[in-house]
Design a binder for these strands. Structure first.
Lengths: 125, 125
DNA sequence: ATAGATGCAAAGGGTTTGCACTTGA
DNA sequence: TCAAGTGCAAACCCTTTGCATCTAT
């Protein structure tokens, strides 16, 4: 599946390559129409899903929000969401071993951390 | 709104009182039918929403999943989601100060931590 | 008695799928 | 050529809403 190079697929990849932040399907559709004006939402979804399956994209899921996607390849990291502008930023570092928090008998496999607050721009006076 | 005591409302509160973990609307519906067999999903949604507004319930939102709800009043805590049975459990403890992860200029206000793995039941042989 | 609450079914919003047409290899 | 990929619209899933009926006060 998705083994051909189409202009739609190229356009969608270009959108991610040109944008430094995680994007949702609607944003991809809008930006992608600059290159392929008749681009359809179904193609965006199918292509994103296949790019995730192929490992080129990874989903960025924040609590209570529809998924965004970003180009894969970054090291293990988490995200900071600005409460004012709603933008999401990658943060480096990690709280480390969280097995202390794991209840007895439970098997810890991975974790997710999201920080909330104000980004540099919104915190500035 | 929701200012009367109905058997549906009571049943829904009972479900949360009897269950120690965060529940989604479908789980509440199923458990609630034990008390009110004709309970409808719309009533579950309406009642949950009003219990959240009144502060009796708080939403538990995990990345990429529809919201669950738990009784308000618990101290700051996080959640563990079982990858096998998809149930969510409250965990005690907290990684603590995460300001090390916060980029310069950013203002950290709060955080969310979710652990993933196998619950005691699903990890058992 | 009567406004509030319920249940059903229909409507919404976002994502997926069926199908005929288009297109890349 | 001709199967993979696309676009459109219908189907889906979860949640909300409209409305006639029921019920707590």
């Amino acid at each position: 599946m998705m083994e051909r190079n189409t202009k739609q697929r190229d356009a969608i990849r270009h959108v991610f390559e040109k944008t430094a932040r995680p994007l949702g399907p609607a944003e991809v559709l809008e930006a992608g129409r600059a290159e392929v004006s008749k681009l359809g939402i179904a193609t965006v979804y199918r292509t994103i899903n296949s790019l995730v399956e192929s490992g080129w994209l990874v989903p960025v899921e924040l609590p209570g929000e529809p998924p965004r996607y970003e180009i894969a390849g970054a090291a293990h990291h988490h995200h900071f969401r600005c409460r004012d502008c709603a933008r999401v930023f990658e943060i480096h570092g990690c709280p480390g071993d969280l097995s202390d928090l794991t209840p007895a008998g439970f098997m810890l496999e991975s974790h997710e951390v999201v920080l909330y607050g104000k980004c540099a721009r919104c915190a500035a006076p």
